[in-house]
Write a protein that binds this DNA or RNA. Structure first.
Lengths: 213, 213
DNA sequence: ACGGGAGCATACTCATCAGTATCGTGGCTC
DNA sequence: GAGCCACGATACTGATGAGTATGCTCCCGT
């Protein structure tokens, strides 16, 4: 149906774009949007600007694509869990565990996404990319909504502490997302370690929200 | 050459510097380090570059000063609470409550500090400011240490969950610090609202760390 | 076996800042 | 009441980096 709904410049550039997005995520993660030069991304790719501008019209568009990719993976993996079996507490726990794991597995992309639409952008580029911007905010809201609904259910079922859901969701995400600030992937020792961190964080977050017995 | 330890250029510029730091914090909060121009800070001051470069040698130095001011306030206010009365749980709760409150009261500075030494800096400016950089990292570590010790005590006393302290501190801070990501000061309604938010977050964090009855 | 275009590289342009150099001006001391 | 200096404004310089213009080279279909 779409001749060209995203601003795809060439017909078959999807895997080329993916490769660019991956490299961009790494550099954006390291330096942030403003301090990242397209040349630096190109260098990480072992290429030059030309390659990137062939697929993307601007740095902002590339940055947006990183965020979109990150959010889409989260939504794709977490939504089924929200619909899965078990009561609200069990489902929320599964979601949190998966969420934390994905953050670590996909650190570059996810870190960029978590940092979010740093203000630096909104002011500078808002006008030109208003539509894309809105769609990303939409994605983020949708994602939070998935959690919010499960939490809502849990509160109504008397499983969770009886507080404003919005205000409960925040520290819940905080406990998990904060890992993008401190987590540094170690060479070696990765496979089972990620799981342990994810479990610890999830445990903390769940205790925070569960109504005391 | 020059004997003065901080790079204070003029003799009595302390209040002038304070005013500059305050303005800088607002702009840095809004746009981040890289995307903030000194001219923008000057404009917020209702002045020009000249004023700023009269007191600061570089943008980095100014940025550092914001971080230092933020960390110093935290340490100054929280440390007494760590030494105060009560068991580890009571002290930790008081600390968390105060911490969250300060974040909201001093949002610009604290947000900049929480975002931390964004990587964008480390690469770019590390060499020249290695000493300052180290002292800021030191401040941050000291601050975390204040919490870590109380948490340690609580674990030994059997009050807190029995997990690696380092891994418990992280989500604890996460639940609190995350508010710098979502909290937007509302005009009106501020005085008691801040207190409620702080209490909710603190409650969450404490439940996360307390050993279930 | 030859156009033509997708997929890049190279080589520009032009704007934005960080930092500097220089110059006014008011207040202070003697 | 003259000189001095803290303070700050104005007017430069130089580097960096986003985006563009253009050229090269395969690969593809015909």
């Amino acid at each position: 149906m779409d001749a060209d709904s995203s601003s795809l410049k060439t017909v078959n550039g999807n895997e080329a774009r993916t490769e660019i997005v991956r490299a961009a995520a790494e550099v954006f993660m390291e330096f942030g949007f403003a301090a990242t030069s397209i040349d630096a991304v190109a260098e990480r790719l072992g290429a030059t600007k030309g390659r990137i501008y062939h697929y993307y019209d601007s740095k902002a568009e590339l940055y947006f694509d990183v965020q979109i990719a990150a959010m889409e993976r989260l939504i794709r993996e977490i939504e089924p869990l929200a619909r899965g079996g078990g009561n609200a507490a069990e489902r929320l726990e599964a979601m949190a565990l998966r969420h934390a794991t994905i953050l670590m597995e996909d650190l570059p992309m996810q870190k960029v996404a978590v940092r979010g639409l740093e203000r630096e952008l909104l002011g500078a580029v808002a006008a030109r990319h208003a539509k894309t911007l809105r769609s990303i905010i939409r994605l983020r809201d949708d994602y939070e909504q998935i959690f919010a609904e499960v939490i809502d259910t849990g509160i109504r079922d008397g499983l969770f502490v009886d507080l404003p859901p919005r205000l409960t969701t925040k520290p819940f995400f905080g406990a998990l997302n904060w890992l993008t600030v401190w987590y540094v992937p170690r060479r070696l020792q990765k496979p089972e370690d990620i799981a342990e961190i994810a479990r610890t964080l999830t445990g903390f977050a769940m205790r925070g929200i569960l109504k005391g017995a």
